[in-house]
Computed example of a mutant assay.
Amino acid sequence: MKAIIFDTFGEADVLQVAEVPQPEVRPDDLLVRVYAAGVNRADLTHRRGGYGRPNFGDSTIMGLEIAGEVLQAGSAVRGYKVGDRVMGVVGGGAYAEIARLDWRMAMPIPQALDYVHAAAIPEVFVTAHEAMLHLGRLGAGDSVLIHAAAGGVGSAAVQLARATGATVYATADATKLDQVRRLGADCVIDYRTQDFAQVVAEQTSQRGVDVVVDFIGAPYFARNIASLAHGGRLVQVGILGGGGEVSIALEHILYRHLQIFGTVMKSRPQADKHAMVRRFREHWLDRFAHGAGLAPVVDSVFTLEQAAGAHRRMESSENVGKIILTMTA
């Protein structure tokens, strides 16, 4: 089968197509003919050497989410059979014509969706639900500030928040604000020219928001805390703007009853990942099938051979929604 490999860490040009053996099926595996795969920032980190030479428990090939057709089911698989259309989060191996997928990380593709749009769902929508609904406990009538709202997880979070009945404040580049507003944001904020904490304070009459979902990290931390209402929850999903040390007066956490969560899907135990997928599937999957206001956002599509171009597109930060690779069977 064809797959993307790289011999050395480096820029996007290190990616190359090669023939590699197809994965062996274990009892809990689905062997899937991959028709589309999502590109994630973790793939850039993988390519640059940020993880060393990982196999994520499944494959040395990069890529974390797929959509395709079941070719074979392991002996312990329940609920799936050969020929089923599935999408899901894999432990590496998505940048290939065939991948193996733990059946507990799989979801049936809603009938109305093609493979490209299905591949834009698993990683980002599961992550958005886990961060904002499960950890952040966002509910109808609450308010949420979503950073990087034009990205994959951010655009998913905006839709889920809107569908929950929350008021949505969202930051993005000025060129993307109209698109974020169309996704369901009530108040869009240009992060380059506006102070989001000041905007939130003004728009909420100094109350703040119930939940902040942040991908940026240290540069936003103090303003995120300032933007929270009494009893508010900050959920840290990424550190695109930098990690390192942050400081906070403990009195703010204590007397304002604040909570701070961190979440990264890739480093969680497998049982936790199963639960994350199950929670998302039970709560939201039917909404995609019935056209009830949720839709995967696809920015652009590249062939497997164009993987380097897909990485450069993500590195440009010009994308709104997901970047997808398609495979040629």
Rank of each mutant, 00 (worst) to 15 (best):
A140Y: 00
G165S: 13
R207D: 03
V124S: 13
V209T: 00
S205V: 07
L138P: 06
A148Q: 02
V188C: 10
V209I: 03
V168A: 08
Q203W: 00
H230W: 14
G217I: 08
A156R: 03
G152C: 11
I189G: 04
D178H: 10
V213Y: 03
T175D: 15
V199N: 04
D190C: 13
S205C: 08
A218P: 04
T204D: 01
A156V: 13
V126L: 02
T127R: 01
H147M: 12
D186Y: 14
R207I: 02
A172V: 12
R137I: 09
R137S: 13
A156H: 04
G208Q: 02
L135D: 05
E123F: 05
D114Y: 11
S143G: 08
H117A: 11
A163F: 00
G154I: 14
V213I: 13
D173L: 12
A149L: 08
A131E: 04
S143D: 05
A157Y: 05
G141N: 08
T127S: 10
L138H: 01
V126D: 10
V199A: 06
A163L: 11
I121S: 00
V126C: 05
D142Y: 04
Q198W: 01
I121W: 04
Y169N: 02
A157I: 09
R223G: 07
V116L: 05
L183N: 00
S227V: 10
S143V: 10
Y191A: 09
D214N: 14
D214A: 08
C187R: 11
P219Q: 09
Q194I: 03
G184M: 03
A156G: 06
T193L: 09
A120T: 08
V211Q: 02
S143I: 10
G152I: 13
